[in-house]
């Protein structure tokens, strides 16, 4: 899944004349032999290949979406039963809550966490990660292209399954024009945060070889803490404070709440601001870990 045909990997045993700092610079600054915007076509190919892989495994993808649809249906019915028992605990009307849950679960489903961690693990295992750094198409643009491709595939599959999703859960237009305008921005931030979290997780492969089990564990815990089952506002006191200080709610709770009007006006803008803060923070964190990891690989030879 790399832009092969552009440049061959150097033969084995070739030593890279650059210092670790140079290599990190190349990676972090996209300062490869040619800048990434000159490699638009190659990147597009990477993204397309990723989408094609998702279509090739469409049965798998659809069944996995089925898991999410079941989840949405169960949540809808359970929350309906809860509302019947006591309708006044939450300020949100039941219908809005169901739309929120439907949307939140679809967002979680479309996160390419496994794509990222697998890609990283493969590159690290092969030891080719260092050569990725000196490729015309740098590592980060490549990873982004992969994410875009995976997202494209996910959206196409969701669109096909939308009628079923609508029956199992509930769909509705955004609460108002402002929500409609802010939602895409918030969603983009959410994907950046989820992507960066996945990169951080995937980089564990620099130190241990197995990451699949850990990724599954992460997906489970993060989807619970992200508010995909229970809106963050329902969590009991201590847990709610904890969840509010973790990045997971920014990946799901924030965009879905903005969409249904659960967070409005100044609060919505502030929430997006917090999301941007997370993007910067996690971006810097990922870069630091990455720098350390790459130095380790370059110095110790993997």
């Amino acid at each position: 899944m790399t832009a092969t045909g552009v440049v061959r990997d150097p033969p084995e045993g070739t030593t890279d004349p650059r210092t670790p700092a140079d290599v990190a610079e190349v990676l972090l600054g996209d300062a490869g032999p040619r800048p990434w915007w000159r490699q638009w076509r190659a990147l597009r190919r990477v993204a397309r290949a990723r989408t094609a892989v998702m279509f090739a495994y469409r049965n798998t993808m659809l069944l996995l979406l089925g898991v999410t649809v079941v989840q949405i249906f169960v949540l809808k019915r359970v929350w309906s039963a809860l509302y019947t028992a006591r309708p006044d605990v939450l300020a949100v009307p039941l219908h809005d809550l169901v739309v929120y849950l439907t949307l939140a679960n679809l967002i979680v489903w479309s996160f390419p966490t496994h794509t990222v961690t697998r890609h990283l693990r493969e590159r690290i295992r092969e030891g080719s990660v260092v050569f990725d750094l000196v490729r015309p198409v740098g590592f980060v643009p490549q990873l982004v292209a992969q994410l875009v491709g995976a997202l494209g595939g996910a959206v196409a599959i969701i669109v096909v399954a939308l009628p079923v999703v609508a029956v199992a859960g509930s769909l509705a237009p955004p609460a108002d024009a402002a929500a409609g305008a802010l939602f895409p921005v918030s969603l983009l931030c959410a994907y950046c945060i989820a992507g960066l979290l996945a990169v951080l997780l995937g980089m564990i492969a620099f130190w241990t070889l197995e990451t699949d089990g850990l990724t599954m564990l992460y997906v489970l815990v993060s989807s619970f803490l992200s508010g995909a089952l229970v809106p963050v506002s329902v969590f009991p006191g201590g847990l709610r404070t904890l969840v509010q200080w973790l990045p997971f709610q920014a990946t799901t709770y924030v965009p879905a709440s903005i969409y249904v009007g659960g967070i409005e006006g100044a609060d919505a803008l502030r929430a997006v601001g917090v999301q941007l803060g997370w993007v910067v923070l996690l971006g810097v964190g990922a870069a630091l870990v990455w720098r350390r990891a790459v130095r380790r690989v370059v110095v110790q030879g993997g």
């Binding site: 850990l214 599954m216 564990l217 229970v230 969590f235 009991p236």
Partner: peptide, 27 residues
């Protein structure tokens, strides 16, 4: 790691029930 995964997988479902039933009387 694997044992923890089993616990997290099954535990998260129960955590959900515990959380919502801390605010609601019954399902």
């Amino acid at each position: 790691i694997l044992a923890l995964m089993g616990i997290a997988y099954q535990g998260s479902g129960f955590a959900f029930i515990a959380v919502v039933l801390s605010r609601y009387p019954s399902i």
